[in-house]
């Protein structure tokens, strides 16, 4: 029979394994935003969300304040309805605006909030009315090429 020494070593081993799991969950992953109860959700309608995905960050001035919870389609307007989970400690005026932006040229898309000036704050279940859709690189390039083509043909 092994004595208490081995039991202590096994205890340490289990603790190390659980600490590793905790590190993977908290430091490596992003479980801290997921913790429910500390967030409230608001929705925003966009004409085009580009390649925005659930769990994408929601930021203000580049600081992360929440994440995208769900993306659905409004069956009457055919707009994308994006639900944002925002941490409770951050309050935003009711007339804040949301835009979908891209990190770098080819990076992931995220939602950026710009605070408005209203004295009333957004509440749980509230709606952000002013939105700006994703800028889709391919569309801009094709528009640019098209207008260039129009110009040249017009002059000739």
């Amino acid at each position: 029979m092994q004595g208490k020494g081995s039991e202590f070593a096994v205890g340490l081993f289990v603790v190390a394994g659980l600490l590793a799991l905790a590190m993977l969950a908290l430091k490596v992953g992003n479980i801290h935003v997921l913790s429910t109860g500390d967030t409230y959700s608001v929705t925003a309608d966009f004409n085009d969300i580009g390649s925005l995905k659930p769990k994408a960050p929601v930021t203000v001035a580049g600081v992360r304040v929440g994440e995208v919870a769900r993306i659905t389609v409004n069956p009457t307007t055919y707009q994308a309805v994006v639900t944002l989970d925002i941490m409770k400690k951050y309050r935003f005026p009711r007339d804040s605006s949301a835009s979908i932006e891209t990190a770098g040229l080819l990076g992931e898309q995220y939602v950026s909030l710009s605070p408005g000036g209203s004295r009333h704050d957004l509440k749980n279940g509230g709606k952000i009315r002013i939105t700006q859709s994703a800028i889709i690189l391919e569309k801009i390039i094709s528009q640019l090429l098209y207008s260039k083509a129009g110009h040249t043909s017009g002059h000739q």
Binding site: L24, G29, R64
Partner: peptide, 12 residues
């Protein structure tokens, strides 16, 4: 970068 891309549910 790691935190924004690693999902606890899917990856960990």
């Amino acid at each position: 970068q790691m935190q924004s891309g690693v999902s606890v549910r899917d990856d960990v």
